[in-house]
Design a protein around this nucleic acid. Structure first.
Length: 356
DNA sequence: AACCGAACCAACCGCCTCGGG
DNA sequence: ACCCGAGGCGGTTGGTTCGGT
């Protein structure tokens, strides 16, 4: 095995760094039209100069339409903390219990907020205990004593690792408690928990038990979440009705991309998401079976917002020109103007024209 | 206003697992 | 049983933003 693992792609020929709106759009459109059966070949087929892994990551962490954006709620944070006690750093497993959240997102939240918060809380508890009645020597774990000394300043990576290991020791005992407490509970398949984490867990008894523990935690937390989620976090699948269009259009986007001096900000509010998807759902029903026909204007707004293009006059003009070209080519066909407003992504005056 | 350190987060890297041949 | 390729995962990095001085 002297050669080592072959790289997943030719690193010299792939683009790295932040994704441009055009790349996002291209990836979105391709996946919508063809799915993602083979990530490795996807970039080539989609005309992206990216590694397949990079495309997958971008899709999973950012472009997937069922993603929930915005800050984590208290309930979500509680869920993460509890699941982390059961599962440890199994971010993808934890993510499977939080619909709309990605493992990367959860990992980031844990590392930046929750871990520090817990350490601080432990330190506070320790402090209180030490000031109170004399605790027995056995009650002061090595974790709490050492962590409290280090949590007053930012951790280096090495220190974080140490803290993490110490947490593991503590969590292990918590884990064992969880497992022992649920051995009489129903089987994992009976639980209404997340699909993947349960159905695909075919590994060791240990991990299976850990999953069970997580399911219990999940059920508990989920009860609290149900009422909240029913209103403002509905799972809306955003249709992407844009047919992969001609090369010129992509070239145009690529040109735009090269004119951009700054990466765009793609803030996307969860509320916007649900609101818009509600709106365009009905419109699409009449058209989405034929991708060349009408498109939900709200989806376009979503995309526009996602790609950070709404204020880009240059882009607007180019796309409007593209639109005029297409309408011109269609000539006096029976297709209505409204059926082709998909190229008019971001022009308020055109919205007015359509009475939107 | 300028600087600096902290916080944040998107993206990359490399290892692991799994499934097909 | 073994090999290989693809997908998945967790750890880490580095660029950007934020907040304090």
């Amino acid at each position: 095995m002297g050669r080592g693992r072959a790289p997943c792609c030719d690193k010299s020929k792939v683009k790295k760094g932040p994704w441009s709106p055009a790349e996002d759009f291209r990836l979105l459109t391709f996946i919508h039209n063809h799915g993602h059966t083979n990530w490795r070949s996807l970039p080539k087929l989609a005309g992206l100069l990216r590694c397949g892994k990079s495309c997958r990551l971008r899709w999973i962490n950012y472009l997937r339409p069922d993603l929930k954006r915005g800050n984590f709620t208290k309930e979500e944070e509680e869920t993460i903390i509890k699941l982390h006690q059961s599962l440890g750093n199994k971010w993808s497993k934890i993510a499977s219990y939080l619909p709309g959240r990605t493992d990367n997102e959860i990992k980031n939240v844990w590392n930046t907020h929750l871990k520090k918060r817990l350490i601080k809380k432990d330190a506070d508890d320790d402090h209180k205990n030490s000031r109170g009645s004399c605790s027995s020597p056995s009650s002061s774990s090595s974790y709490s004593s050492s962590s409290s000394s280090s949590n007053l300043r930012p951790h280096t990576h090495y220190e974080s690792h140490q803290v993490c290991n110490m947490e593991k020791e503590v969590l292990l005992s918590a884990k064992n408690q969880d497992i022992s407490s649920i051995t009489t509970s129903s089987s994992a398949s009976d639980c209404a928990g997340p699909k993947e984490a349960i159905s695909t867990s075919s590994s060791s008894n240990c991990s299976h038990q850990v999953d069970k523990a997580a399911v219990v935690v999940y059920d508990e937390v989920n009860k609290q979440k149900m009422s909240l989620n029913s209103d403002d976090h509905q799972q809306e699948v955003i249709e992407i009705p844009m047919e992969e269009s001609d090369i010129d259009f992509w070239d145009m986007l690529d040109n735009l991309e090269s004119n951009e001096s700054q990466p765009q900000e793609f803030e996307f509010e969860a509320s916007h998401n649900s609101q818009d998807s509600n709106l365009f759902g009905e419109d699409l029903d009449d058209h989405d079976h034929d991708p060349n026909r009408g498109i939900g204007i709200e989806w376009l707004r979503y995309l526009e917002n996602e790609l950070g293009l709404e204020d880009d006059d240059q882009c607007n003009n180019i796309i409007a020109a593209k639109y005029n070209d297409e309408v011109g080519q269609l000539g006096s066909s029976t297709t209505s103007l409204a059926d082709h407003h998909q190229v008019m992504l971001m022009r308020p005056e055109i919205d007015q024209f359509f009475g939107i």
